[in-house]
Design a protein around this nucleic acid. Structure first.
Length: 511
RNA sequence: GCGGGCGUAGUUCAAUGGUAGAACGGCAGUCUUCCAAACUGCACACGAGGGUUCGAUUCCCUUCGCCCGCUCCA
């Protein structure tokens, strides 16, 4: 099967997002900056709705979850404790020929020394037999080059110790030939900055790569002041930053992104699998409520051998994006690793005293973590739709519609006077706009033909359109006076509704 | 980070070694009687930098960005 070289659907969505003011490339007038995006007038409404829905469902409608907004820049030790500095800051070595990448500390090399003279180098990847392998290579090397003399035993060193003049002489483990390896380069995922006026090592700080650590670091403060009892959760929405090597797929993976994370603390004796399942189901239901069809969702369980050593299990809710099935929402059982680490690094005990069980323990945690940006992209992709609609003369034309769930649509209702050159219509339409505006996002439009205005709203996913016509003014008698047509985005059907009943009709539909 | 492809209006495309056209969209106006009507007018582009050249949007180099594949994604 050949992979499609292009992705027409994705291109259409990207171009619609730009055309209608959802998403722009950041700093575009300067040529753009890779991995950063701006959200325009409609994008910002959509994101706000996503955040608000999540916050409402996750925090406000529950007794057991409280909110938090921690700072983006935290004490650098936070990232030592979390493992982001120590464990994931490994220098990497690339082989320019085979395109393989190795961790420098797992790549070993040694000079081949005959009669006290270095005649070449051998290399091997870390394994139980690295030393033996390299000794064998050295002997083979000696035979091949037909060099006489005494071969000294090889002494493997890892690549982080390679001197710059040695690097071109060390063979790549992939090809066996020297000259293709790059010097070790650090791939630190965290964005760095300096706090304070001095730009020295002591001032280095990091932009958080996840919001989660804020919840762990403030765990004690919340337990002490929040009147919370296990099981309970701490939720946070905020920006995070990662130096992704390859930002790709529109806003799917960016360097600045917004997370919605929740840490749900449970007893160390609780059945974590039960809570894990509970949160997976909760997240799936939430996505469906946000308008994503259940049929486009699936689950992926991370294989045990790929899990971090502290994780008991991670399940990703996957979404069928136009560019493939990709991770949307990760639900991780993190054990009590994070709290224990912070206890260790800060010296502050992170134990919870359980009034019911009458004992102390370090709680375990289940973490549903999702990106606002990813949800936004999934919503855009599943909402995008092209169908057929009749034009003025009844001829079928293709129509682009974003079928957003009304609760997350940027604009809930658009209001039109049938004609703009009739002051009575305009005045009445503006009165209807003012009536609804305190309760929902509205958009007033009087430009062009009515059909065009409907189509414009279809393209930005506005679920309802209201048109004020001559009947509204009472031209056909009192029966229709002060009624308007309410037009449905998806069916394009219209019904006649009394202005006085609009609010009670619309409000339940947009919740 | 590597390899391949590509950068011309808001979008989709065209042309050209002598500085660019269209369609759709946008804005304003005339006109309107419920699904992208018509007419008129207006605004808007050669991603950036350097080189070759009398002259570069066009050729070359660099860079930035986008797409596809690999890699990476704690």
């Amino acid at each position: 099967m050949t992979e499609p070289k292009e992705n027409p659907l994705m291109e259409k969505i990207v171009s619609l997002c730009k055309r209608r003011g959802f998403i722009f490339q950041s700093s575009e007038i300067y040529g753009g900056i890779n991995g950063f995006w701006d959200y325009g007038p409609l994008g910002v409404e959509l994101r706000k709705n996503i955040r608000d829905c999540w916050w409402n469902d996750m925090v406000r409608q529950r007794d057991d979850i409280v909110g938090l907004e921690s700072s983006i820049i935290m004490h650098p030790k936070v990232w030592e404790a979390s493992g982001h500095i120590g464990g994931f800051n490994d220098p990497m070595v690339d082989c320019k020929v085979s395109k393989q990448r190795f961790r420098a500390d797992q790549l070993f090399f040694a000079p081949v020394i005959i009669d006290r003279k270095i005649v070449g180098y051998v290399s091997a990847l870390e394994s139980e037999t690295t030393a033996a392998e390299m000794q064998e290579q050295a002997e083979k090397f000696k035979r091949k080059k037909a060099i006489q003399g005494k071969l000294e035993p090889v002494q493997p060193r890892d690549f982080t110790e390679a001197k710059s003049e040695e690097i071109p002489l060390i063979p790549s483990p992939a090809t066996g030939e020297p000259g293709s390896l790059t010097p070790p380069r650090a791939f630190n995922m965290m964005l760095q900055t300096y706090v304070g006026a001095l730009r020295d090592e002591s001032a280095v700080a990091y932009l958080r790569p996840e919001t989660a650590q804020g919840m762990f670091v403030d765990f004690k403060a919340i337990v002490d002041t929040g009147r919370v009892k296990i099981p309970f959760g701490i939720a946070q929405v905020g920006k995070s930053f990662r130096n992704e090597i390859t930002p790709r797929n529109f806003i799917f993976r960016s360097r600045e992104f917004e997370q919605m994370e929740m840490e749900y603390f449970i007893s160390d004796e609780d059945d974590w699998a039960k809570w894990h399942r509970y949160w997976i189901d909760w997240c799936r239901e939430w996505l469906v409520k946000a308008g994503i069809p259940a049929a486009q969702l699936s689950e992926y369980n991370h294989p045990k051998e790929k899990l971090s050593h502290y994780s008991k299990g991670t399940t990703d809710i996957m979404f069928q994006f136009p560019f493939g099935v990709q991770e949307l929402w990760g639900i991780a059982a993190r054990g009590n690793f994070d709290l224990s680490q912070h206890a260790k690094f800060s010296g502050e005990p992170m134990e919870y005293f359980d009034d019911v069980a009458k004992r102390k323990y370090v709680p375990h945690v289940i973490e549903p973590a999702v990106g606002v940006d990813r949800i936004m992209l999934a919503i855009l992709c599943s909402a995008y739709c092209e169908d057929q609609a009749p034009d003025e003369k009844g001829k079928m034309e293709s129509r682009v519609v974003l079928k957003f769930a009304p609760r997350i649509a940027p604009i809930k209702v658009a209001i039109f006077p049938l004609l703009k050159n009739k002051p009575e219509l305009v005045e009445k339409a503006k009165a209807v706009r003012d009536l609804l505006r305190p309760h929902m996002t509205v958009f007033y439009d009087e430009a062009g033909a009515i059909g065009r205005r409907y189509r414009r709203q279809d393209e930005i996913g506005t679920p309802f359109g209201l048109t004020i016509d001559f009947d509204t003014l009472g031209e056909k008698g009192d029966e229709l006076k002060d009624t308007v047509t309410l037009r449905d985005r998806d069916t394009m059907k219209q019904e006649r509704v009394k202005i006085s009943e609009l609010l009670q009709l619309l409000l339940p539909k947009i919740r």
